[in-house]
């Protein structure tokens, strides 16, 4: 178990370095000097040359890369071209908003998803099942921006119940969280339903029933405990997905999070900022799936003994 954990950790770090390299190379095959693009057509050549040297952009690519890696280990991700502040500081303040959004979205997704999943499994092929599974398929097929705009239009514009955008008040997080979490809720609901239906066919469920346990007792103590294992791992992966996938939700609802920072970085052709945000989002996903594996092996005694 310990050995495989260390193995996985090393693997995760290697993949992460690969990711940095990939981002680094992709952002630098863009033709043209980024400084020139940033300063516009009228910049004089001497200033451009001075700034290029200052930022180390005249060095060969591999030297730039090692410089970036070594300063990244010290928590220095460079300075944003367009906003003039250290990237780590910009990301730090944006990350708080993204984290709140992701937490709310996850809460919505899990409560709604598990609830609907259980009800669907219990009432298999009857009205609640069809209704909830319809909703979950809708959630999976609806693009996030459509869900977001739909919620804005109905609850913000027509009914005036909740703010349309901005996060000055905490209620501003409600609509974005639902928009972001809907998709995950659909996935959780389907997974819960499938896992629970599979578990309900196991022999030990029949045994429990034969022993005279009440139907709800069987469901909660025997079936759910085992059915929740795969759902739990998926939820861990999902949470990291929510953290890194809020680009569109943040744009539609004007929330100053990491995703919006990324869109700003792209439109401002701001390489350090884009690099930092992309790296953060990917790192979250990589370590999220690592955590999911660990969690799974801790919770499932069969896997625990094998490792």
């Amino acid at each position: 178990m310990k050995k495989s954990l260390i193995h996985r950790l090393v693997q995760a770090v290697i993949v992460l370095i690969g990711v940095v390299l990939l981002i680094f190379v992709m952002l630098r095959i863009v033709p043209g000097n980024p400084i020139e693009t940033m300063m516009g057509e009228h910049a004089d050549a001497a200033t451009v040359a001075r700034m290029t040297a200052e930022m180390g952009l005249d060095q060969p690519l591999h030297i730039q890369f090692f410089r970036y890696i070594s300063s990244a280990f010290r928590g220095d991700f460079g300075t944003s071209y367009s906003l003039g502040k250290p990237v780590s500081q910009l990301i730090g303040s944006a990350f708080v908003n993204t984290l709140i959004l992701a937490l709310f979205a996850a809460l919505f997704a899990w409560v709604a998803g598990i609830g609907c999943g259980i009800l669907s499994a219990v009432h298999k092929n009857r009205l609640p099942d069809r209704l909830f599974m319809g909703f979950s398929i809708l959630g999976i097929s609806l693009p996030v921006f459509m869900a977001a705009m739909f919620l804005q239009y109905i609850f913000g514009f027509c009914l005036h119940w909740l703010p349309i955008s901005g996060t000055e008040r905490w209620t501003g997080f409600i609509l974005p969280s639902i928009a972001l979490g809907w998709n995950s809720a659909g996935q959780v609901a389907q997974m819960t339903r499938t896992a629970l239906l599979e578990t309900l066919q196991e022999d030990y469920i029949d045994t429990a029933r034969a022993k005279g346990r009440s139907p709800s007792g069987v469901l909660v103590h025997h079936a759910l405990r085992n059915a929740m294992l795969p759902v739990l791992t998926m939820m861990t992966i999902q949470f990291s997905g929510l953290l890194s996938g809020a680009v569109i939700t943040e744009t539609v609802f004007s929330i100053n999070g990491v995703g919006r920072l990324m869109v700003q970085a792209i439109s401002g052709r701001d390489i350090p900022l884009l690099q930092g945000t992309a790296l953060l989002a990917t790192a979250v996903v990589i370590f999220g799936s690592l955590l999911a594996d660990v969690l799974y092996s801790v919770l499932d005694p069969r896997v625990r003994k094998e490792g």
Binding site: V15, V247, M262, V285
Partner: peptide, 20 residues
Amino acid sequence: IADVTLAFPSMLLAMVIMYS
């Protein structure tokens, strides 16, 4: 290479590629 590609959230990878 496939591992690294899959490690990216797909939307994010698409954004970085479209940028370049």
